[in-house]
Amino acid sequence: MTSQNSQLFQWRYTELDDHNVQVQVQGHTLFYVIMLFGIVCFVTVLFLYARWVCRYHGLPPETSHGGSAADVSPPRPLPGFDAAAIDRLPIVLHSSTSSGVEGSGECSICLGVFEDGEKVKVLPRCGHRYHCTCVDRWLMTRPVCPLCRATLLVDSAGPWV
């Protein structure tokens, strides 16, 4: 009887051998890994395509009033002033005893300290003071104060009068 039990156990052991089960699980796992990789690649390509379309074919910018992009023209950068307009700015001599304008002791463009008796230009709208060469270069490219961004245009005809 012991020989029959051992044969039955051996037969059951070979029948319950999980070697075939491991191959099936590995096959399914490989299939799922390949599917996951394919999905990730597909989503990546889809994202890159959408990015390319937005960048090179230019989706219209959203407008605040709900109109289309054709209704709104893009903001045009304001041109700077010519040398004659910049030369009309008031020039004063700096003195350390004169207080009145906050931060009047240094040029906010170059961060240099004003010396007593040095010529500085005063912007008419805000009263900020700058070295002449610093503010001249700035105003050739932009018609605004470098510190507070106040516009220096009085009307559409030209700069301050």
Score class of each variant (00 low, 15 high):
residue 145 C to R: 09
residue 12 R to C: 14
residue 120 V to L: 12
residue 6 S to A: 15
residue 104 S to N: 07
residue 78 L to P: 00
residue 1 M to Q: 08
residue 130 Y to D: 00
residue 72 V to T: 12
residue 151 T to L: 14
residue 50 A to Y: 02
residue 30 L to C: 11
residue 13 Y to W: 13
residue 122 V to P: 03
residue 126 C to G: 07
residue 127 G to H: 04
residue 65 H to S: 10
residue 58 G to R: 06
residue 142 R to Q: 05
residue 39 I to F: 13
residue 100 G to W: 05
residue 141 T to C: 09
residue 146 P to F: 02
residue 24 Q to M: 12
residue 9 F to Q: 07
residue 37 F to V: 15
residue 47 F to A: 15
residue 101 V to P: 11
residue 102 E to G: 05
residue 160 W to Q: 06
residue 129 R to F: 01
residue 159 P to Q: 02
residue 145 C to K: 11
residue 61 P to G: 12
residue 120 V to K: 08
residue 120 V to D: 11
residue 43 V to H: 07
residue 104 S to V: 01
residue 103 G to Y: 00
residue 131 H to R: 00
residue 37 F to N: 10
residue 137 R to H: 09
residue 110 C to E: 10
residue 125 R to S: 07
residue 35 M to F: 08
residue 110 C to K: 05
residue 15 E to M: 14
residue 116 D to N: 12
residue 75 P to D: 10
residue 159 P to G: 09
residue 114 F to P: 01
residue 59 L to G: 07
residue 87 D to F: 09
residue 18 D to F: 06
residue 37 F to R: 13
residue 44 T to G: 13
residue 33 V to Y: 02
residue 63 T to W: 03
residue 151 T to V: 08
residue 10 Q to N: 11
residue 39 I to P: 04
residue 4 Q to E: 14
residue 20 N to E: 09
residue 38 G to D: 06
residue 109 I to S: 01
residue 91 I to H: 02
residue 90 P to D: 07
residue 105 G to S: 06
residue 104 S to E: 03
residue 130 Y to L: 04
residue 79 P to E: 15
residue 87 D to P: 00
residue 123 L to C: 02
residue 7 Q to L: 14
residue 44 T to K: 10
residue 134 C to M: 01
residue 39 I to W: 12
residue 127 G to I: 05
residue 1 M to D: 01
residue 91 I to Q: 05
residue 51 R to E: 04
residue 134 C to A: 06
residue 15 E to G: 10
residue 30 L to N: 15
residue 93 L to S: 09
residue 32 Y to M: 13
residue 11 W to M: 13
residue 99 S to T: 12
residue 7 Q to G: 05
residue 12 R to P: 00
residue 87 D to Q: 07
residue 37 F to D: 13
residue 132 C to K: 10
residue 22 Q to N: 06
residue 125 R to N: 11
residue 36 L to H: 10
residue 30 L to K: 15
residue 13 Y to M: 15
residue 101 V to L: 14
residue 144 V to G: 02
residue 70 A to R: 07
residue 141 T to D: 14
residue 35 M to T: 13
residue 19 H to P: 00
residue 130 Y to W: 02
residue 104 S to I: 05
residue 113 V to K: 02
residue 119 K to Q: 15
residue 77 P to M: 09
residue 93 L to I: 02
residue 116 D to P: 01
residue 140 M to A: 13
residue 146 P to C: 01
residue 66 G to L: 09
residue 127 G to D: 06
residue 42 F to P: 00
residue 91 I to A: 04
residue 119 K to A: 15
residue 152 L to I: 00
residue 77 P to W: 04
residue 76 R to S: 07
residue 69 A to I: 03
residue 134 C to E: 06
residue 77 P to E: 12
residue 118 E to P: 00
residue 43 V to C: 13
residue 67 G to R: 12
residue 48 L to M: 05
residue 36 L to V: 14
residue 146 P to S: 03
residue 86 I to C: 07
residue 27 G to I: 03
residue 46 L to M: 03
residue 3 S to H: 11
residue 58 G to E: 08
residue 92 V to K: 10
residue 1 M to G: 06
residue 108 S to I: 07
residue 82 D to R: 03
residue 97 T to K: 08
residue 47 F to C: 11
residue 9 F to V: 04
residue 48 L to R: 11
residue 154 V to R: 14
residue 28 H to P: 01
residue 149 R to T: 13
residue 66 G to V: 08
residue 119 K to E: 15
residue 147 L to G: 07
residue 14 T to I: 15
residue 119 K to I: 08
residue 35 M to W: 10
residue 56 Y to G: 03
residue 114 F to S: 03
residue 11 W to A: 14
residue 41 C to S: 11
residue 160 W to D: 04
residue 69 A to Y: 12
residue 69 A to W: 14
residue 1 M to R: 07
